[in-house]
Design a binder for these strands. Structure first.
Lengths: 224, 224
DNA sequence: CAATCTGTTTACAAAATGTTTACAGGCGCT
DNA sequence: AGCGCCTGTAAACATTTTGTAAACAGATTG
């Protein structure tokens, strides 16, 4: 999970951003001025830094320069007020990765953050595999013997749930709650139907399952 | 496609640059010291060389001199640490084409690389292609089997977004954010309509898409 | 070995999702 | 203003997915 450091002296804006980021599942750190910000940046090793250009104490530019000359390459997105003369070349030279002009929309900010994070920490393709099957969780692609398989959303969700809970008997209720969620109340037979579909697509011999096992009287168990 | 050789003894920086370049579609080669670098430069014929000034063994200056005296005219961009006295005259004399001072931003580096490559091989626009279609990102021109295709701005933007994110399911929201921007809030159906238009203009068989694939329940996926 | 319980499979209709077409407003151009 | 092209939306249509029921199969128990 990513931690994002927000350095801005405007308490109101800072809190707004913090709340937004936490809603989106980021961990956050905050600093009200450049010195504190720089210290947190160096000690807490955030994944990304949002820094205001104008700050009491050290300016945003100073923070960037200090970080980069400490050979720290944490990605930085600069926030700049509408009035500020934005010298793009300067920003790039001090090692900023992107900038956003205030006032900015939440979607814009999030999109820029995600874009920078994606660019910096590329494709740590987490690929789970069992037998001759690979599941690429990032790309949402399942392949067997090199050939891509088409899974429906429900099938894919069920499969990832099995993959995350291998080797353990799972009751139909546990599966329903985790895969379908607490809001929907489908019949427990639904689980069976989908297990059948998974077996047909993923088991070498669908009639004699070797991975999606039945635990009589209990539920199912996935064996990698 | 261009191959870029990176000669730098700082493993961290080297890897960062390599990853960046590969994300941008360059092939890469790496070397940690001047001797290895020189050898790779001569044997692998890269399109461009990034070389640190200070290197163990042969310095960056030595590498340049050696290359040029071997009548090799591969363009060279010199990387220099912030503290280094940069003697521009020296750089020009040894045949460097540009230099970048550390710490530099990723965008700056890419811009310089593209500028040098463009200067050296002016014909070589950055052209992405898939199947029998070429997309010239500089000229914003799309052609198929030599004939120019007329795309509207929205279609072109959508196409380039797909080209830059191949092989990965993209949700309608991601597409909206990236292509339409953060300010506008069009209906997600809008994406569908434009995908249809792209398919009609670019797919050999628009009813049986082979490149702009639907991922049911998720969004779309572009397959080169 | 029947009776009973549990799991499997098939088929199907409802729901969700995606495609296509048509169209009206917007924008630039003459 | 008039024209034409681009675009977003809506509505009709098509397809895929999915939950359920019912028939079937296998396991368990007394």
């Amino acid at each position: 999970m990513h931690t994002i450091l927000v350095i801005d002296d405007d308490e109101n804006l800072r809190d707004t951003i913090i709340v937004l980021l936490e809603q989106e599942g980021f961990r956050t750190l905050a600093a009200a001025d450049g010195n504190v910000g720089l210290e947190k940046a160096l000690t807490a090793k955030p994944s990304l830094i949002l820094v205001d250009l104008r700050l009491p104490g050290k300016s945003g530019v100073d923070v960037c320069k200090a970080l980069r000359s400490a050979r720290d390459s944490t990605p930085i997105i600069v926030l700049s007020a509408a009035g500020d003369e934005i010298d793009k070349v300067l920003l790039l030279e001090i090692g900023a990765d992107d900038y956003v002009v205030k006032p900015f929309g939440t979607r814009e900010l999030l999109a820029r953050i995600r874009a920078v994070l994606r660019r910096v920490s590329p494709e740590a393709h987490q690929v789970l595999s069992f037998a001759d099957t690979q599941v690429d969780l990032q790309r949402r692609v399942v392949s067997r013997k090199g050939a891509e398989l088409k899974l429906t959303p429900a099938e894919y969700n069920l499969l990832t749930f099995f993959l995350q809970n291998p080797d353990r008997p799972l009751t139909r209720d546990m599966i329903l709650n985790s895969v379908w969620g607490y809001e929907s109340f489908p019949n427990t037979r639904t689980v069976d139907a989908h297990v059948v579909r998974l077996r047909q697509k993923l088991e070498p011999e669908p009639d004699c399952p070797r991975h999606f096992l039945t635990v009589h009287g209990v539920g199912y168990r996935f064996l990698p």
